[in-house]
Amino acid sequence: EIPVPVYTGEESVASHFALVTAYEDIKKRLKETERENSLLKKRVRLLEEKLLGSHLEEATSSVG
């Protein structure tokens, strides 16, 4: 026994509604992921600068 949905013209409205629900959520996730991405890129840049700094320091101290 399986459900036999009655086809109604309404169905296209329903399917649109369901897709809008999904789209809105995926859009929100994209926004969040992009924001996180941006923060991660900043952090990578910061860490790279620190690392460069500490290498330079090291180099200086071993030379001096």
Binding site: P3, V6, Y7, S15, A18, T21, A22, I26
Partner: peptide, 20 residues
């Protein structure tokens, strides 16, 4: 793929859809 729950009543009408 992305899926979603939908509640369909016995007349075949969609009464709710979830996030994906």
């Amino acid at each position: 793929e992305y899926y979603q729950f939908c509640y369909v009543d016995q007349d075949g009408l969609v009464r709710g859809a979830s996030i994906p």
